[in-house]
Design a protein around this nucleic acid. Sequence first.
RNA 1: GCGCGGUUAGCUCAGUUGGUAGAGCAUCCCCUUGACGUGGGGAGGGUCAGAGGUUCGAAUCCUCUAUCGCGCACCA
Length: 727
Amino acid sequence: MHNDNNIPEKLLKPYSSKDTEERIYSAWEASGFFNPDVCIEKGVTAPDAESFSIVLPPPNVTGTLHLGHSFEDTMEDVLVRFNRMRGKKTLWVPGTDHAAIATQSKVEKLLEKEEGKRKQDLGREAFLKRVEQFAQESHDTIVGQLRLMGSSLDWSREAFTLDSDRNFAVRTAFKKMYDDRLIYRGHRIVNWDPKGQTVISDDEIVHEERKAKLYTFKYSKDFPISISTTRPETKIGDTAVAVNPEDERYKEFVGKEYDAVFCGVPIHIKIVADESVEKEYGTGALGVTPAHSQIDAEIAKRHNLPTVQVINEYAKMMLGGENLMGKKTTEAREIIAQWLRTEGLMEKEEDIDQNISTAERSGGVIEPLPKLQWFINVNKPIPDRGSKTLKELMLDPVKDASISILPNRFENVYYNWVENLRDWCISRQIWYGHQIPVWYKGSEVYCGIETPEGDGWTQDEDTLDTWFSSGLWTFSTLGWPNNTSDLKTYRPNTIVMPGYEILFFWVARMILMSQYLLGEIPFKTVYLHGIVRDASTGKKFSKSANNGVDPLEVINQYGTDALRMALVTGVGPGNDIKFDLQKVKAYAKFSNKLWNIARFVFENTASLDRAQPLALDAEDQASLDELTALMQEITKEMDEYKFYLVAEKLYHYAWHTFADIVIERCKQKIAAGGPGALSAQQLLVSVFPTIITALHPFMPFVTEELWSMLPDTGSSFLMVEKWPCKA
RNA sequence: GCGCGGUUAGCUCAGUUGGUAGAGCAUCCCCUUGACGUGGGGAGGGUCAGAGGUUCGAAUCCUCUAUCGCGCACCA
C-alpha cells in the first residue's frame, strides 16, 4: 500500500518556514505575477476582467518597523491574493512616505546626539542630503520587511511621496488650488511649535492634561473688573476685556475704555460684550489677548480690536521692560504673578487641571502666534464643482454611501471632524518636504508648476505639510496628472486599509484631494484597522515604552505564515489586537499540520489513477458537499471583508474536519480496499488542493510549497490559480 | 464638556438578519511501532458586567447603572 517513491524528500521532515519562504518569495517576484500587466500577458487574468486596486498606506521613512506594519501588510495581502485568485485585475501599489516633520526631527535628533550639531550648522542643502540618506536606509528596511511578510506588491510601480513624479503631482495640485483661490496666504493665529520651530496644523496637536495655576486679578487698582488667566505673561498684550452681554454685573462697563500700566507696560483696554464668554467661568470676564489665543483673535475680529504680539517664535517675551524682555514665558509668568502680589492686585490663585496643546512630533508646548502662512480654504464654494465647498466634497460621498467606512461607527466620527474643520494650514518651516511652488520678486508673487522665467525670483522657503502629498496618493501613484491608462483602469481604488488613527490625517485628505482634483471618489471602501498592543500590558507598542516585539524575530522563529494567521484571525475592523505569541505558536503548528496532511494524502493516493471518473460513495460525497458549502460561505465572507472569520473557519475545517474526521475515515476505507478505498482516495485528492488553495491568501508560503509538490501542477503558481468557488 | 467602543470559559477573543453559547491557548485524564507527539481521544470550566423593558424566546434590540479604554474640544 505504501509507496514512498512519489513522496518528495522534504515532506518526510517537519515543515521548515526558513527553508521555504525566502525561496518562494523570490520565485513569485521572478514570475512577475505581482504585476497585473504580466498576469494579463501570461493569460492568468482576462484583459477585460474587473479590477481590484489598493494602495499600501505608505510607511514613514523614519526607520521604525513594528507589528502594526505586519498587521496591515497581512490584511491587505490577504485581500489582494484572494482577488487575484478570483481572476480580477489586481493591483497593490507599494510606496513610502517622506513624513516631513517626523523624518526631519528624527535626523535632527541623531545629528545632535552623534555629532552635537544642529541642522543650521550644515545648512539646508547638506542637511537635506543627510535626511535623504537616512530616508533611503529606512526605505530599504521597510521594503525588506514587506517582502518578508509575503506582500504581493507590484514593485514595478513603487512610489515615494517625495520623488520627482509625486513632486510634479504636488506642484500641479497646488497650482490648481491656488488658481481656484482655495489656497491662500494669510496672516492668522497659528499653532506655533517653538521646539520644532514650525507651524503645525490643528490635527498635529495633542492635548495633555497638566496642573496649572489660575490667577485672578485686576490690571490695576482703579480697573473695575477682575479677570482670570493661567497665562499672566500674555496679559501685557491684552487689548480688551470681554464679558457676556447678558451679564448684569458688567453691563454698565461695556463700551468703556481704560488705560493702565501692567507690570511696567502701558495697556489700553476696551470693555466689549461677546456671546462666547461664559458668565460662570472665573470672574465671567475674559482678558482678550488677540495675538496669543485663537478664541481671543476671533473676539478681536468681531470687535475690531488691535493685536499686540508679546511672545516671539522662541516662546520668549518681546515686549516689556528689562524685567520681562527676552525672558521665557514661564519665567515671565512668575515675574508678573509676583508683581501682582506685590501691588496687591492678586485676588486668587487656584490649582486647576488644564489641557494644554503640544506638538505631536516634537512634544513642544504650542504657542499660538500671529503669522503669515499658507492655508486651504475649506469653506469656499468651488465653481467647477457645483459651487460646493471642500467640506461638502468631503462629506457627500460618505453620506450618499458611495464611500463606505468600516466599521460603520467611524462614519459619525468622520462627519463630526469634517463639519468642525477649519482652514487647513499647509505650510511648514522645515526643510524636508515639497517646497511651496510660489516665487517672489519684490511685491510680485508667482505660483506655477515650474520656476518663473527671468532673474530675481526667490522661491518660498517653506515646505508643505506631508499630508498634502499623501492626500494625492491614490492617483499620484497611477501617474496623475498625466492621463495614464493606469488611472482609467484602477481608479477609484476598490478599498483602502489604514489604521483608524489616520482617518483624519490621511483618509479625509485623500477624499478631499480626489474629489476636488479628479471629481471622483478615491476609493469605494475604507477598512479601518486597529492598533497592535502588548499582550500583557495592553499598551500600544512603541519605541519609548520599549515593549516592541520585532516582527523579524517572530518570523525567524515561527515563520511568516504563522505570524500572518495570528494577526488576521478573529480581529474585526476597528478592533485593537493584543499580540499573543501563543497564537503564533499555534499557527506554526498548523503549518506543520498541513505538511503532514499532505504527506498522508500523497502516500495514500500515489497509486490512484486520476483519469478515472469520480465514484464517491454517499458519505464521501457528503464530505465533498460540506466542503463546497464551506467554500461558498467563506467566499461570500471574503467579499464582505470578513477575512478574520474565514481564516478561523479554514483552520478549523482543515484540522478538525478534514484531518481528524475525513482522513481517519479514509484510513480505514483504504485499508479495507475495494470501491470504498477508491472513493476515499478520490475524496482526498479532491479536498486537499481546495484546502491549500483557499488557505493561500492567508498562508501563502506553505501552501505554495505544497502546491508545487502536487502531481500535475508543473511549474504553475498557486498565487495565480483560480479561487475554488465561483459564487 | 460632547461623542464612541469594550465588558462572553483561567487568558486572548469570535458570535450582523434575536432561537436553550464557540475557538485558540492553558488545565485535567487516557493513548506512544500505524500522516503528524509541533500528535490523537476525552473532560472540566461561562446566571454572555448589573438592573429593567420589548418578545413565544435576547449575548444579540431599547433604557438606565457600573467599570475600563479611546476620540474630539478655543473654557479664559
